[in-house]
Amino acid sequence: MAISRFLIGGVASALLLTGGLFMWKGYTQIAEVEVLPDPPPALPAIPAAAANAPKRGPAPPALPAAKEASREERRFNRFDRDRNERISRVELMSSRTAAFRKLDTDGNNLLTFEEWAVTTGKKFAGADADRSGDLTRAEFATTAPKRKAKPKCRC
């Protein structure tokens, strides 16, 4: 019984390997067959207008106004520092460096549990107005980061 299972498993493995080999060969042949299209022909040179040539026609229509960026587009653009339409890990974490530096009290670029606990404990103690050891909803709401006032005009 055990030997028949072993043989069936071996045959199934051989079939899977053979199928994988054929698929791999098929994909490599497809990749070799692809041919790049010919480059477009060069455009003829545009002759320059003579001195007494008539003026051009009417001005082209005005361009449509650019759409205002959505909230998510603005948020994405805030993190995409190099404007390559991709956010790297460094770009994403760069906005958090100021907060990290506040927590890293000894300035060694390593955050220990003690550094984090001291800062968190101070924040908790500052929010616990009635000194009960628990935060009520109103007290907890005071721990939210303060938002900076946005300038009304960037003229």
Rank of each mutant, 00 (worst) to 15 (best):
A2T: 06
A2P: 03
I3R: 11
I3W: 13
S4E: 07
S4P: 00
S4I: 09
L7Y: 10
G9S: 13
G10M: 11
V11Q: 00
V11H: 01
S13L: 11
L17N: 00
T18Y: 01
T18C: 01
T18V: 03
G20D: 00
L21D: 01
F22C: 00
W24I: 00
K25W: 06
G26V: 00
Y27N: 01
Y27C: 00
T28V: 02
Q29M: 02
I30C: 00
E32G: 04
E34V: 15
L36T: 13
P37E: 10
P41K: 07
A42H: 10
A42V: 15
P44T: 05
I46W: 04
I46L: 14
A48T: 04
A49V: 15
A49M: 15
A51G: 02
A51I: 12
A53Y: 06
G57F: 09
P58T: 11
P58Q: 08
P58L: 12
A59T: 13
P60C: 08
P60T: 08
P60E: 10
A65V: 08
A65S: 03
K67E: 13
E68A: 15
S70K: 15
E72T: 15
E73L: 09
R74Q: 12
R75H: 12
F76S: 05
R83S: 14
R83W: 08
N84T: 13
V90S: 10
E91A: 04
L92H: 11
S94P: 13
S95H: 11
R96F: 15
T97E: 07
T97W: 07
A98C: 01
A98Q: 09
A99P: 02
R101F: 01
D104M: 13
D104N: 09
G107N: 11
G107K: 12
G107C: 01
G107I: 01
N108E: 08
N109A: 08
N109Q: 11
L111M: 14
L111Y: 04
L111F: 11
T112A: 03
T112N: 05
F113L: 10
F113V: 08
W116E: 01
A117T: 04
V118P: 00
T119G: 00
K122M: 07
K123P: 00
K123D: 11
F124D: 03
F124M: 09
A125Q: 10
G126P: 00
A129W: 02
R131S: 10
R131Y: 04
S132L: 13
S132Q: 09
G133C: 06
G133N: 07
E139V: 04
E139L: 04
E139Q: 06
E139W: 05
F140L: 12
P145L: 12
K146I: 10
R147K: 05
P151S: 05
C153Y: 14
R154V: 05
R154G: 07
C155W: 06
C155I: 07
C155S: 08
